[in-house]
């Protein structure tokens, strides 16, 4: 018993030697700051003053009473819905198309499709600000040339179009990632399944629905979870392109948090928003994982 136990301890210590460096860094640079943020959310602090005033739950009350928070949250939900729909599904379609036998230059397509995803958001925002510019932007010009002038719009300046305009730019960045992941999953699909399906006389649509789709289900779950978390965190593209305007029409929680903490110097309130955001992400991820697990089991 004792020998066994000692051996187990030895094993544990050895394993810990591998894990500890990563774990310690993770605790110091991720976990402790989170705990500090939660702590800070119970204080009123302007970031400058030496006095931090304990206010209990007042910051949270203020957030939930503020219409901008709810507006920002609704924009996050919009972003989640459409990010799961547009770039994710489009990325999957592209991957399925690319993995067909007859497609040539597969490498070229694959490399280029992922390129928007690797470019800095600063660059992306410059590019898209120019494309969407109402006066000299190429998008409106293209729409006018092909006779769809009625759809030309003041993309980033109009409360009705701004979220869609941002979404276009966001999707441009994101679909490459979805494609790469799906492609990876498809290459894992055993080619013999396909052959069997063909021999059984299934047409391509049937093959796709009955063979490829179920295999893609896990990938879709992964991508959707990724989009869900990513959409809650979305910051840079909004901050760089509209700063949440016009009149909060594109405000998301993270830009609201940034503005509260760093522009208005309400660090306690900002920390409370950050805490709420983290809790929301954790809850949504947990629910999503539960649901998708149940589906897989069934």
């Amino acid at each position: 018993m004792t020998v066994k136990r000692r051996r187990a301890i030895g094993k544990w210590c050895k394993a810990m030697l591998f894990v500890a460096p990563a774990l310690i860094c993770y605790i110091v640079f991720a976990i402790i700051p989170i705990i500090n943020t939660i702590e800070l959310s119970f204080y009123k602090w302007d970031g400058a003053s030496p006095i931090m005033e304990y206010v209990g739950l007042a910051n949270y009350k203020e957030i939930f009473a503020n219409p901008i928070f709810w507006k920002a949250l609704s924009h996050n939900l919009f972003w989640i819905t459409f990010t799961i729909m547009i770039p994710t599904i489009f990325g999957i379609i592209l991957a399925v198309m690319l993995s067909q036998r007859f497609v040539r230059f597969r490498l070229l397509f694959r490399v280029v499709f992922y390129m928007p995803a690797i470019v800095s958001m600063v660059a992306v925002s410059v590019i898209w600000n120019w494309i969407l510019n109402p006066e000299f932007g190429i998008l409106n010009r293209i729409l006018k040339t092909i006779g769809l002038g009625v759809f030309a719009a003041d993309w980033l300046g109009n409360e009705k179009t701004v979220m869609f305009a941002l979404l276009i730019a966001g999707s441009w960045v994101h679909y490459g990632f979805c494609m790469v992941i799906t492609l990876a999953a498809l290459s894992g699909v055993d080619a013999s399944y396909m052959e069997v399906a063909k021999l059984e006389g299934a047409n391509p649509v049937q093959t796709f629905v009955y063979v490829t789709m179920p295999l893609l289900k896990n990938t879709f779950t992964l991508l959707a979870l990724n989009s869900l978390i990513g959409s809650f965190k979305v910051f840079e593209i909004v901050y760089m392109m509209t700063k949440g305007g016009p009149y909060n029409s594109s405000e998301v929680i993270s830009t609201y948090m940034y503005r509260t903490a760093f522009t208005n110097s309400e660090f306690g309130l900002g920390s409370a928003i950050a805490t709420v955001l983290s809790v929301l992400i954790a809850i949504c991820s947990a629910i999503y994982m539960k649901v998708s697990e149940r589906e897989v089991d069934a």
């Binding site: 600000n129 006066e135 000299f136 003041d154 300046g157 109009n158």
Partner: peptide
């Protein structure tokens, strides 16, 4: 211009400086 809310300040300056 048609849509002031969609015009970035930097681009606006450029339009003024190029005489538009």
């Amino acid at each position: 211009i048609d849509s002031p809310n969609a015009m970035a300040h930097d681009d606006a300056r450029k339009m003024f400086m190029s005489g538009k």
